[in-house]
Nucleic acid binder design. Structure first.
Lengths: 348, 348
DNA sequence: GAGCATTTTTACAACGATGGAACGACGTTG
DNA sequence: CAACGTCGTTCCATCGTTGTAAAAATGCTC
């Protein structure tokens, strides 16, 4: 039922190729014919068949976005930005969810054959170095966030060590002495980096490194944060501050602390990581590291684009490791409002 | 570089079609040849070219999911479920974001030509009846949530009137007399339905309908909820309860109320709508209507699938209007914990 | 072992779009 | 006015896959 080039051509009284030329903006078409074709295009409501075009051209117009789970606010927000950035460059985005498991990350990489996509943006969590060896990289691949260290693949992320150091430095700066960390995880590279930043900051502030103030979290959901916090509160000498490796952990931790009868920030200061929209409205609002998400999305899509075209011309385009900016948003979970709660909303 | 049927055929010493037959599980292939082909398949690592296959078969393998914004938790959660449901049926999902504007909803419907997708799931917000007239519906279309009343299109949603009545009935049931509503919006069909349920419940409880207890919200973001709440608090006689048309509005409303010095639920009870994950962990946790989101996702994808196949055989498959179940999750924002806050997490 | 039915394999033509070559129809130039 | 370069158009092949139909191989019966 849908119109094809052939239909349009018949209606306009020209050859199929001429219509194709008009559609693709080829210069040399007689004005009269162009007019006729455009009219026919309009009346038939012609839309190119992307499958066919892809078959012929070898490009698909799709890029894959592989991430743990769309329902996690950080990834939802990131995905929204990636889609927007990709669309500006004429790409559609296919989203693949891995639940953060190695199996599904690997299969996403191979199953989405090179036939289907022009590139992939991957936010890995469990992928090991050797998985990349198996991956015949025929399309550009960019990793976002997590990074398997010894694989030469384009990468976009913030400086995790510095960000963590900034966050924990802030806690030390407001006088906290027993600063815990939630989110350590041997399988996550970013966890190690954030832990490193945490340690750096403690050392810098002349505070001791206590192993049992560092709590592991397998998943990074609210539930795990609450769990970890309860664990910390069971200590003889509970912490007076906690740095959580993402906002969800922090939200969970705050919940557990409040249920335990603590006041935030008086008894316990909390810092998160990601600046999800939720963190600006939680009660108390959450101090957090705010990565520039749209810079990340933009850089990732841009890299796919550049490497895609560079492949043809200049094969020596070096592997990129792009660091995007971040800031620390200081909110009520670390600094109580001096006056009574005001009638102003939290900053966006 | 990627292997095609031709390559495999050459390697196995048979015709292209025989390989195709093996790949597609056609029965009549000599065991010896089948073995050889399978071996060749394995050594080349052949993957079918989906674009080509779809071109031939007339299917695309994609369905579109058109929604306002992925960064809104409800839609992020829904999208995650739709993707999972679609994948079980061999579909990939293309996500289109409309920001809830009529223009972009309309253009998503037309631009995603029938060439590109086998069906579309649409969560509309601003679309008017007449927009559907223009839409040459050549592929199955399912509307989720919102529903343009007089258009015969498959639809999946919960019973909004009943849900709202349940929520407000709960507020009346715990003794609230001045129950406000946040989220009225002339352009949203669900808003009218929820308002209707709100009014039904008030009437049922013998409470007066006060127009200025109903506050409009253009967007349904946290910000708008806070804004609306401040408006209500400026009243001479502020409400003792508020029913918000989604969780984000409720979160914003709670924020504004707390900033204003109110205690929740003692001074103000709050009910939301959607049961986003955030609502179970907010402080206080939020009482909310919990639609069965995976039932919605499942039903929507299933409808696309059934209508797609029904089109061939039985053109008289009637328009469906599926109501999915919901529950009311009662949490701290309406019912204070009787004992001191316990060391238990909120229910999931 | 001829005749016939049944398997198994292959050749060919599509699906819709586009790159390239070929072909006309011009207007210029010498 | 013949030779030539430009412009505009059409024809053909092709991307990888699969449905159709025809061809080839096999098995069975008498």
């Amino acid at each position: 039922m849908a119109a094809t080039l052939k239909d349009v051509a018949a209606l306009a009284g020209v050859s199929v190729k001429t219509v194709s030329n008009v559609v693709n903006g080829y210069g040399f078409v007689k004005p009269e014919n162009r007019r006729r074709v455009e009219e026919a295009l309009a009346t038939t409501g012609y839309r190119p068949h992307l499958g066919a075009r892809n078959l012929r051209r070898g490009r698909t117009g799709f890029i894959a976005l592989v991430l743990p789970e769309l329902s996690i606010p950080y990834f939802g927000e990131l995905a929204a930005l990636v889609i927007t950035a990709a669309q500006r460059r004429g790409w559609n985005v296919l989203i693949e969810q891995t639940q953060g498991t190695r199996d599904r990350e690997r299969s996403a990489l191979t199953a989405m054959g090179p036939h289907m996509i022009d590139g992939a943006i991957l936010s890995p969590q469990a992928l090991a170095t050797e998985d990349f060896a198996a991956f015949h990289r025929e399309v550009p691949l960019v990793m976002v966030g997590e990074h398997a260290v010894d694989v030469p693949i384009d990468h976009v992320a913030i400086d995790n060590v510095l960000a963590a150091r900034t966050a924990v430095g802030h806690l030390a700066g407001i006088g906290r002495r027993r600063i815990a960390a939630i989110g350590q995880n041997p399988h996550r590279g970013t966890a190690s980096l954030r832990l490193e930043g945490y340690r750096d900051a403690l050392t810098e502030a002349g505070l001791p490194l206590l192993d049992d103030l560092v709590v592991t979290a397998m998943e990074y959901h609210r539930h795990d944060g609450a769990e970890a916090m309860r664990h910390l509160l069971a200590r003889q000498e509970p912490p007076d501050a906690v740095f959580c490796f993402n906002d969800l952990l922090a939200i969970g931790a705050m919940r557990a602390a409040v249920e335990h009868g603590l006041r935030i920030p008086e008894d316990l200061a909390v810092v998160g990581f990601d600046n999800t929209e939720e963190s600006a409205y939680s009660i108390p609002s959450l101090t957090t590291i705010a990565p520039d998400k749209s810079a990340i999305a933009e850089a990732a899509v841009d890299l796919i684009s550049r490497r895609g075209t560079a492949a043809a011309e200049d094969a020596t385009f070096p592997v990129q490791d792009i660091q995007t900016p971040f800031t620390l948003k200081i909110r009520e979970s670390t600094v109580a409002r001096t006056t009574q709660l005001r009638r102003r909303g939290p900053e966006a």
